[in-house]
Design a protein around this nucleic acid. Structure first.
Lengths: 197, 197
DNA sequence: CAGGACCGGTGACTCTGTCACCGCGCCTCA
DNA sequence: TGAGGCGCGGTGACAGAGTCACCGGTCCTG
């Protein structure tokens, strides 16, 4: 176990922004971080989420390459975790085989996630992307608690277009738009759409 | 230095394809590999290139996660390198600090490249992407030896659209289309376009 | 010389995304 | 209590991006 500092932050905290220096390596024991890219037009894309038990890969890249952050990280659910300072991190990577394995596994996992994201954005139609996101974000009751704006970020698209396609999904009876979120009605058909193209 | 096997392959060889098992970890001393994703529609996107002195990250992900390949790798320039079998690779990662550093650095580098690619595809206009690719692929004489089809893969777009925009670039005097390739005339203006949006 | 493969140009689409503007519900604060 | 100010979502009109089918050219190769 490398030397570490306990760390916590409430929902909504901006953990890091592009251009900032990286204070150390973050490992979560509780909560969730959303990592996004924002274009100059103000448009936002969700890259990935870090959940409890995982390590933050944005910090990894920064520490290895000695660079500043390229993306933004926001706390989505109240956070608890360990912050491992840069030099401790490098030392642990050298000396602690378990830690090393943990980090390498995480890196490889994120790596394939990124590749999947590229595939989705570059090779897949919008409807498939939207269907995937809806399936991924639904809770146990089959409800998606997200605004159209949030779905736009998840699908790397625009808010207005999300509204339109969602209306079309609703027209076809695949989903139902309710005040408390989007209800998934025909899961199977959504899966079908998600796999197309 | 981990145990290794000399490895070579001529231009055009398909090194790996989606679904295949990974024979080991590849480190180049000569040549270049192009790594691409192909969608079910037949559309292709270039993910990255592995040059001499670099390691192949596709193999890395496969070995760590014990998965098969997700992308395709083709030899673009005659290849020379070392193939390190899976178990040797894991052992070297444990025992050889230099090897470890080399791998980690490569991973981190690719990681930011992927992020850049996502940013380009999701947040950037087509013209900017095209300009970037032209600037990246040009030789010392300012010539880009690539077909429109190849540029389509590089820009994650379609061939017909590339043709059209390239014609427009030519009309504006930014480039000149010649039988032996595309000549870059106004580098500075292309850089401008590449930075937009 | 015929056939085929690859290449690039073009018209006519469709899909995707943008912009501007609207109305609604909800909050806050004087 | 009512005026303003949100954030949210709906919509028309448009612009950007990508597709499809088809054509003609060039360069092989048999």
């Amino acid at each position: 176990m490398p030397a570490r500092k306990a760390f916590s932050a409430p929902k909504g905290t901006i953990l890091f922004s592009p251009g900032q220096d990286c204070p150390g390596f973050l490992r979560l024991t509780q909560g969730c971080i959303k990592v996004t890219l924002t274009g100059s037009s103000g448009r936002e894309v969700v890259l990935y989420r870090v959940h409890s038990g995982e390590v933050c890969l944005q910090t990894f890249t920064c520490l290895i390459e000695d660079q500043s952050y390229a993306a933004e990280g926001v706390v989505e659910e109240d956070l608890q975790g360990d912050l491992i300072p840069a030099d401790q991190f490098r030392q642990a990577l050298e000396q602690d085989p378990d830690f090393r394995t943990e980090v390498l596994t995480s890196v490889a996992l994120r790596f394939s996630e990124y590749q999947q994201l590229i595939e989705d954005v570059a090779l897949t139609g919008f409807d498939a992307r939207l269907a995937k996101v809806l399936l991924r974000l639904r809770d146990e009751a089959g409800l998606v608690h997200a605004t159209h704006t949030a779905l736009a970020a998840e699908t790397a698209s625009g808010r207005a277009y999300v509204s339109r396609r969602l209306a079309e999904f609703a027209r076809r009876g695949l989903v139902e738009q309710r005040p408390d979120g989007i209800r998934i009605c025909r899961s199977a058909e959504l899966v079908q759409i998600a796999e197309q193209k």
